[in-house]
Design a protein around this nucleic acid. Structure first.
Length: 260
DNA sequence: CCGGATGTTCACCT
DNA sequence: GAGGTGAACATCCG
């Protein structure tokens, strides 16, 4: 289940509570708060506030409140999920275990009688009050060839590493980045300053397209249309051998034939 | 026991 | 500043 896709589902869940009023807030695990060392008590300001809007920037889920004005930012890491009244729109997470323990409830907020819980086994997600939104990178769902070119300018790192860097482009995770590069026929290790105009435009289009496709088809299944992330796999497009390597600190898979 | 996993961040090199 | 690497975070799985 690709990353930004599921966060969008969580956003839709929270959006169903817009107009509601916060009755209680609880940070169960202070390690979950950002910035590191933030006081758990700060979240109390949300009590009595009204949820006015939800939106996404990259993988960051933002809930805006009024009276008093405040913004709550939620990050889900690799194993975080959101429960509303004990239910989640995501049945299972690939890398979360099948179990579902209440002890992993790191943050809870009650809005109009509905209990919103961030349950995160590995505790790699976080919650932040009034996150700094002034220097966010462009959102992956709205990239254009020009935006990509601008984001990559003055850089030389591998395109896969650049796509994973949330300060360059916000929203792509490991699977989504591999899939977009596969669709665009670009090898993940190719430095961004070597990409042609045509490749930049292909990449831009396939990023937007991949996110859109998986958002609409990913709800009822795993979100992935094929599986090529294993040894010996053949490319579903051209039957080339799939290769893997570590790029940008993460395992990347690509087709040795049609991606260059 | 070890390594790796849809993520982010920090420290430390070059 | 840029880029790379490795560790850390917490937990489970093969």
């Amino acid at each position: 289940m690709p990353e930004l896709i599921e966060v969008e589902m969580y956003r839709a869940d929270v959006d169903g509570l817009v107009g509601g009023t916060v009755q209680s807030v609880r940070l169960n695990d202070r390690r979950f708060a950002r910035p590191k060392g933030a006081e758990p008590a700060q979240f109390e300001v949300l009590v009595g506030a009204q949820l006015t809007e939800t939106r996404l920037h990259g993988k960051l889920l933002l809930a805006t409140f009024g009276k008093p004005d405040a913004v709550l930012g939620l990050r889900f890491g690799m194993t975080g999920r959101l429960l509303v009244d004990g239910r989640s729109s995501i049945e299972q997470l690939e890398y979360a275990s099948g179990r579902n323990e209440p002890k992993w409830d790191r943050f809870e907020i009650e809005i109009s009688g509905q209990r919103v819980v961030v349950r995160d086994q590995r505790c790699l997600g976080s919650v932040e009050l009034d996150p700094d939104l002034s220097k966010l990178a462009p959102d992956a769902r709205r990239v254009s060839p020009d935006i990509l070119r601008e984001a990559f300018s003055g850089r030389s790192k591998a395109v896969k590493a650049a796509l994973l860097d949330q300060s360059i482009i916000a929203g792509l995770g490991n699977l989504l980045a591999d899939e977009a590069l596969w669709s665009a026929g670009i090898a993940p290790g190719r430095p961004v300053d070597e990409l042609s105009d045509v490749q930049l435009s292909d990449l831009s289009r396939h990023i937007v397209e991949t996110i859109k496709r998986l958002t609409t088809t990913g709800g009822s299944n795993t979100g992935r249309t094929f599986d090529f992330r294993h040894e010996g796999a053949l490319c579903p497009r051209c039957s080339g051998g799939m290769r893997s390597d570590r790029i940008g600190g993460r395992t990347s898979w690509w087709c040795s034939r049609h991606q260059s």
